[in-house]
Amino acid sequence: MTLQIATANRLTDGIVVYLGYDGEWTRHIDEARVAEREDDIADLLIEAKAAAAVVGAYLIDAEIHLSEESSRTIRPQSYRERIRAFGPSIHPAFAKKMVPEHFDPRTDVSAVFMNGI
């Protein structure tokens, strides 16, 4: 089974958030609670959907990515979710902080584009 994390948009400002280990929603995808076993995944979705502070919760496929400094980052599988997590790709100034190396919008737009993030 692919690893799953729960995401949604925060009710008050619409910002993309992920459900963390402490039951709090976090802006940083690397702090997301990762579920692998089937019942953990089911629990994750139930908890995410029950939250009143967010809108439109759902699960996404993710993979754990180890960077050179061996710090652990999480990378969504679909490019839509990658743009959601790290984008917008055209606006480096407004892209999320803590951008992992597999997505660097600060490089030339076309280079990012060609690499297919």
Partner: peptide
């Protein structure tokens, strides 16, 4: 929506 407010990818 009737007041022009969407929820998009990153924000409202």
């Amino acid at each position: 929506l009737m007041n022009g407010l969407y929820l998009q990818l990153h924000a409202y």
